[in-house]
Design a protein around this nucleic acid. Structure first.
Lengths: 156, 156
DNA sequence: ATTGAAATATGTTCGTA
DNA sequence: TACGAACATATTTCAAT
């Protein structure tokens, strides 16, 4: 994996390979190869290059949060006493397993996080006893996701 | 995949299998088997059950947006003229490839979206010519993600 | 960059406990 | 549920173009 971050250009065949694997990480190389019309070895080589150049950052199984009992997703905007406290706050947020994303953002808040909870009760406990308890957090604004209509990756 | 949505209970071995595959969808079953201390066939059987029960919702290759030239991620809160317009608005948002997530939310906005753009110029164009152009969108509030510090799935 | 074929590694099925 | 062994597929390497 390259450490610098110049933009990498990929061609149409790379895109087709990536599109397939982005929707199913276990799709067999040969199946992709036959569809595109080049050999499996060529796909393999292209994948190796895409990994080395850092275009591919990994692969993941995804699980259904709701079936596991996690029904409440929410976004929380966090106001901090001093913006300088950002790094300490993030360090604390990392320790909270319900926090799925954490962004430094422009606008009203210092930090915006996405969290997943079992239910509203769990969400309330999390906000009151974990998030608000973090040193430096002065106020939060919570937006519960009633329904997620789109969840996808960048389209190649 | 089951269609009802009762909560599914999974045991410690299932969790260990899922944790491994959630961090690397292509990790060989036998490697997981050896680590846990059960046979590959047993892992295979458990995975089949986890798929059938709907716990596993898929697998994905993930790509590095920045290396592909997409450097600006943002959240946009959308105010609608009438809340009843929600479904039409979502239909339009689905057509915009830069939209990665779309949530109906409680709070100020009707809808909160996450978008990915090449740069601030691209973001501005997207907001002015695509998002604001959607019938029913009255106002938007944009929060640019200056840096994403956490990006992970639910922790089993 | 690409190929086909060989070698290796992995996934899947099945009879049994 | 779990096992191991047999079987079926998939990945990886490689010499050649």
């Amino acid at each position: 994996m390259k450490s610098n971050s110049f933009t990498v250009e990929i061609d149409g065949i790379d895109k087709e390979i990536l599109r397939d694997l982005m929707s199913d990480a276990r799709k067999p190389i040969l199946q992709i190869a036959n569809k595109i019309g080049i050999s499996g070895a060529a796909i393999h080589q292209r994948l190796r290059k895409l990994e080395q150049s850092g275009v591919i950052s990994g692969s993941k199984f995804t699980v259904n949060n709701k079936i596991l009992g996690y029904n409440t997703m929410a976004f929380v905007g966090i106001y901090l006493d001093k913006a300088a406290r950002n790094p300490e706050t993030v360090r604390e947020l990392k320790k909270i397993p319900e926090v799925l994303e954490c962004h430094y953002t422009t606008g009203n808040w210092s930090i915006l996080i996405k969290i997943i909870c079992k239910d509203n009760e769990h969400l309330m406990q999390l906000l009151n006893t974990k998030i608000q308890a973090i040193e430096g957090v002065s106020r939060t604004e919570t937006f519960i996701s009633l329904d997620q209509q789109i969840d996808r990756q960048i389209q190649l």
